[in-house]
Design a protein around this nucleic acid. Sequence first.
RNA 1: GCAGCCGUAGCUCAAUUGGAUAGAGCAUCUGACUACGGAUCAGAAGGUUAGGGGUUCGACUCCCUUCGGCUGCACCA
Length: 569
Amino acid sequence: MATLREILAERLAHALAAAGFSDAPAEIAPASDARFGDYQANAAMILAKKNRANPRQIASEIIQHLDVAGISDPPEIAGAGFINFRLRPGFLARQAGHLASDDRLGRTPAAQPQRIILDFSAPNVAKPMHVGHIRSTILGDSLARIARFLGHEVISDNHIGDWGTQFGKVIYGWKHFLNPEALETDAIGELVRLYREVNALEATDETVKKTAREELVKLQQGDPENHAIWLRAVELSWREFQKLYDLLDIHFDERLGESFYNSALGPLCEKLAAAGLAEVSEGALCLFFRDIPALADKPAIIRKSDGGFLYATTDLATIEHRVQRWDPSAIWYVVGAPQALHFQQIFAAARKMGVTADLRHIVFGSILGEDRKIMRTRSGENVGLAEVLREAIERARVLVTEKNPDLPAEEREEIARIIGLGAVKYAELSQNRLTDYVFSWDKMLSFQGNTAPYLQNAYVRIRSIFRKLEGGFDGKAPVQIESPAERALAVKLLQFAETVPLVLEDFRPNLLANYLYELADTFHGFYEACPVLKSEGATRASRLVLCDITARTLSKGLGLLGIRCPEKM
RNA sequence: GCAGCCGUAGCUCAAUUGGAUAGAGCAUCUGACUACGGAUCAGAAGGUUAGGGGUUCGACUCCCUUCGGCUGCACCA
């Protein structure tokens, strides 16, 4: 089913062709203000600029050829040359009626599905996940859900940091003062303790430092004992990550960490050197980008002078593997802004290697504490993700208990999880990913304003109507538009289909979040103005259909953000 | 020093990528209602979009410049 925008754009395209303006973009935008109608076309002003003509004159020529009978009132020219459309209630009612029986709520799959590798989350083994991982994890998951909904094939890959110099210290600590019980109950905590103790010892004891470095070399050379310790540390860490991913309802298709590429690093360097793409400078094997001004004096080192490899090497091997195995049309990296230069280098290098896939670094800003500085605990450490999620659920539990003390404890617990996790996810996804944002419990868990609980509550109110409903629900009843509130709701509902794709244009789930908030707001207006259960006959049937579509759109939309809706709260 | 990102109401954020009088929420003030879940709704007030210049019918958006903040810049990841 075509969206409102597509329908108007098609009519506009015909009119432009008929009027002799076939080179103009047939684009329709939502009206900037409800006073002007529902949609607007700015083509006349663009054409006027191009042809040095009078925009209103051109607008009137376009209008003469514009056939929107049955869809819109006659288009009007306003201002500098805007063409405004006001959709007809009958048309809106018919279109909205189609949504009632459509699981996809009017959004047809992409005409040209792509295969996309989505690289996100990527925690480091032997370190706890902290709030810094929230954005990548939640943003990445949401983009995966949205891309899949739009018909693309998404391969999500958790490129965990399971290989690095920290393992020399972890292995040394493991051999000398491992606490097996602590490892059992809190594996990552114990691994962190080992790392820190060795680190502290190294500061005063050269022997420890030397031995730890030797443990690392042994690991890298394949020593069976060290390899076994490393493998166990990775699996124990992963087990804890998995608990968080399960809680967050986030799943990965692949978990190809850095270590997966170890054997590919040497050959890759040889290949690049042999092809003349890499050259030795100051003893290190480097890739130079002399043809790119921004990178002209910023080579990427792929093999150190001591023969060791770097994460640039691993990332290039990763791209090579992904291209060979999946031949994706795009690879998306959801990684923080500080790594922008690294990705510029990696992408430039990949292009030298002949990679044609669309490589994107999806940048995001930092999470700040209420003091507007990078969020830290009182002792100056990163705030743990597990602790954040636990506190969110705990706070939600208090709120639910306060509001609805009679619900069975088990149900309350489930609702607290949905609300607490939803609040954290929505706080992240409802803002522009580029801006730093201030983490505030009170704001994200508020039931007022642009928050997950507000949207969930709108859903719950609708479900409550259906619980009270007597005499069954006819989902096929025709939609009638009799009041401004019903009209506004119908338009909003029909705009779901044109909002979702916008998210992928610049990787901005906040556009969808914004839409859902506006939908909930519009619904509340409808809810106040249009009694549902107390109305009768065809009006009542129509309003029930509108309620049902709204509930499904809220649920589907929040679902695309990775957020669930409770039936009660 | 060079480069990138950012600067919007008291606070937290939008602005569909160059469109009309820059929009929401919180907080503040005024109203509605023993309520289809009031965890609501209607309204008021709040702005030189950091400052200055430029491009054009039109600029928060593009260009130049100043100021301020964050980040990165050869063998950590």
